[in-house]
Design a binder for these strands. Structure first.
Length: 506
RNA sequence: GGGCCUGUGGGUUAGUCUGGUCUAUGCUUGUUGCUUUGGGAGCAAUAGACCCUGGUUCAAAUCCAGGCAGGCCCA
């Protein structure tokens, strides 16, 4: 009975996730993908409002932790990139020379970002003497300025962030919110007097990520990326990955500890209290519209989106019923809207002249957490009808509606967390043990596609390569929560508490 | 990185193989009017398309090449 209705809006079943995801973001009016450049979608008001609310979560974390918002230019002159590339090459060479070579995996060449950026080579009719590129991230422009701003230990720590668009010339397949060419990017950059200060920043970043993901009702895996997967400019990188319903992981946040490697290149030093000149230590913390991609992918269902109350543009949709027949309905709905708004709840009155069913379906598709109906019969009884997007209807009294609604929003967020955790548990399993000789290893049990595997792993780079080849998946790195009891490493057989996950990553 | 497939009104689709009957089909959506209105209303009228560039040909939605865009598979 339900299929003809769905067919009307053409929502594919969510079990077919790879079809459902691209369809739902357009049907729910988040973006229009028809703009004729690959990987560049038009943000529509509903999608943009949602993204702005997500940014709001990041901003309030930034404010809470004493970061200040900046806005750096979009264009970067080529010579600064060369500075960065030299740094990256130098670090890479050092790493190759200094570190145990078995922990390294070589890349063919190392031209840094050069290939992945958009270039601006002309101004009007003229060729530019120094070509410029669109920022793929903002280390280069920011650190150039930081070195002018930071002079004394009193200037530290410098905690900055910006929310801007960045550009990457993706040649692979793009996917809205997940892999795009114009990225809606959040980046925090900090400068500290010493390594310890940067360490504390990394801990603060970790906490902020968890608070934001809690608001978005998203469980995650936090791992320290393997050495061979770490951006060469970083001393180490940590990332939070969300397990999407198709079993792929989506990296939604990263934070890097740079130590003083960049400071050296960008001449970022300060005069300490004792008069000595010292190099700064730096960190970065990045997130993007992938957070929205994760929210859409994780919470939505066959009927459309489900937005967590924290980021739903409208938490309550008020639907006047039979207003054409009774003049008291509209004023009563407006009074309700005022009451809810003044309690800090985001509301919208849907007074379109369409049948009520249309309104219900529209807001169901767009994932509004609560729909509230009010008609003459309800007014007479002093009640209203509220329908929750996660399921269920109630008929609470109009009296005290603000607290009823805000309780309902809270319990809906809990329900979403519960569902997301269930998804996580369904899709994350221990890797079956390996049997056979080296070079001819096999899984003892059936190996499933679309599953993230938990694995005890204590091998080096080439062991990792064996494991990745065998599974066709990628190691996320050392998980923040190691095993309590020692486990046997799948490849080396050594006893270890190192817990890792191996997954197909987006 | 390698391979395969696709592109027709806002959406979806017929037609493409085998060039002419295409002045391009159906559904849906949009617009207008009337009747409706407590979970996707009905009737009537109306609007709207062959991805781009070039080639082959008397003739191209149809064949060829390139571009752009999208989808799928493998490393």
């Amino acid at each position: 009975m339900t299929s003809p209705r769905k067919a009307k809006r053409g929502i594919p079943p969510k079990s077919d996730f790879n079809v459902w995801y691209p369809a739902i973001i357009e049907i729910a009016d988040l973006v229009d993908k028809r703009y004729p450049i690959k990987g560049m979608d038009v943000w529509k008001p509903y999608g943009l409002s949602t993204m702005n609310l997500i940014d709001g979560l990041a901003r309030s974390e930034m404010t809470r932790t004493g970061h200040q918002e900046y806005n750096f230019p979009l264009l970067v002159p080529e010579d600064l990139l060369e500075k960065e590339n030299r740094l990256v090459s130098k670090l890479k060479a050092a790493r190759e020379a200094g570190v145990d070579p078995s922990e390294l995996r070589m890349d063919d060449d190392n031209s840094g970002f050069k290939k992945e950026v958009y270039w601006v080579t002309r101004g009007g009719e003229n060729e530019l003497e120094v070509p410029m590129f669109l920022r793929p991230t903002s280390e280069t422009p920011m650190y150039t300025m930081f070195s002018l701003w930071v002079r004394s230990h009193a200037d530290l720590p410098l905690k900055t962030f910006q929310i801007v668009n960045t550009f990457r010339y993706e040649t692979k397949q793009t996917r809205s919110f997940i892999r795009v060419r114009e990225i809606h990017f959040f980046e925090a950059h900090t400068v500290h007097a010493d390594e310890d200060g940067a360490n504390r920043q990394i801990e603060e970043d970790a906490e902020m990520v968890q608070r934001i993901l809690h608001d978005l009702c998203l469980p995650s895996i936090v791992s320290k990326r393997p050495v061979w997967d770490t951006f060469p400019g970083a001393w180490f990188s940590k990332a939070a990955d969300v397990v999407m319903p198709n079993g792929r992981t989506l990296q939604v946040a990263t934070y890097h500890h740079y130590r003083d490697q960049w400071a050296d290149t960008f001449d970022l030093s300060y005069e300490a209290a004792d008069g000595q000149t010292k190099l700064c230590h730096q960190t970065t913390f990045g997130m993007s519209e992938r957070l929205l991609g994760a929210v859409v992918g994780m919470h939505g269902d066959d009927n459309g989106l489900i937005l967590p109350p924290s980021v739903a543009p409208f938490q309550v949709i008020l639907m006047p019923v039979a207003a054409h027949a009774d003049d008291s309905v509209i004023p009563a709905v407006e009074a309700l809207a005022d009451e809810l708004s003044s309690a800090g709840i985001r509301v919208k009155i849907d007074d379109r002249d369409v049948r009520p069913g249309v309104k219900h379906y529209d807001w169901e598709i767009r994932g509004a957490p609560i729909r509230l109906e009010l008609g003459p019969r309800d007014i007479a009884k002093g009640k209203c009808i509220i329908s929750l997007r996660t399921g269920g209807k109630m008929a609470p009294p109009i009296d005290g509606i603000a607290s009823t609604v805000s309780d309902a929003l809270d319990s809906m967020a809990d329900e979403l967390r519960l569902r997301a955790n269930r998804n996580f548990e369904d899709l994350v399993k221990p890797l079956p043990p390996l049997v056979g000789e080296e070079g001819n290893l096999e899984f003892a049990e059936q190996f499933e596609k679309g599953i993230v595997y938990e694995v005890a792993f204590d091998g080096n780079d080439s062991d990792a390569e064996v494991l990745e080849k065998l599974t066709g998946m990628t190691l996320l790195g050392d998980c923040d929560h190691s095993f309590v009891e020692p486990h046997v490493c799948v490849i080396t057989g050594k006893s270890t508490q190192r817990r890792q996950y191996i997954a197909r990553m987006y």
